[in-house]
Amino acid sequence: MHEMALAESVVSIAEREARRAGAERITSVRLEIGALSHVVPEAMRFAFSAVSRGSLAEGARLDILRVPGRAWCHDCGREIEISALGDACPACGGYSVQVTGGQEMRVKDLEVA
C-alpha cells in the first residue's frame, strides 16, 4: 500500500503551495495519474482521505485525471495505446512494445479558499 506514502507526498505538496498562497483551506486537489504508473486510483483516494485528516486538505475532494498508457510497437512501427505493462500491441499482437507515456504521477493543481 505505497499509495499511503504517495498520498502523504500529495498532502505535503498541497499544504506547501496553499500556505505559500496564504490560503486557509484546500477544497480540492487534482492529480494526473498515468495508466502505467504505480498508483491504483481507489487506493490513492482511500489513502488521501486518511492522511489528509488534520491538514489543510482535510475534506478536500480528490480528482484524478487518468492519462492513457502510450507505447511504440517495434513490430509494426506504430504508436499505440496500452492499458497495462505487458499488454500486446492492439494492432499486431506483438510484444515488442516500448512504453512512451502514461507513467506520470503529478499534482496538477489545487483549489483553495
Partner: peptide, 23 residues
C-alpha cells in the same frame, strides 16, 4: 474552476504541476 454553483465561497486555483515523488 468554473463556478457553476453560485453562492459558494470564492475559490482560487493554484497551478502546481509537480511530480508526487519529487521529494
Amino acid at each position: 474552476g468554473a463556478a457553476h454553483a453560485p453562492g459558494l465561497s470564492e475559490a482560487r486555483i493554484i497551478e502546481v504541476e509537480e511530480n508526487i515523488l519529487a521529494a
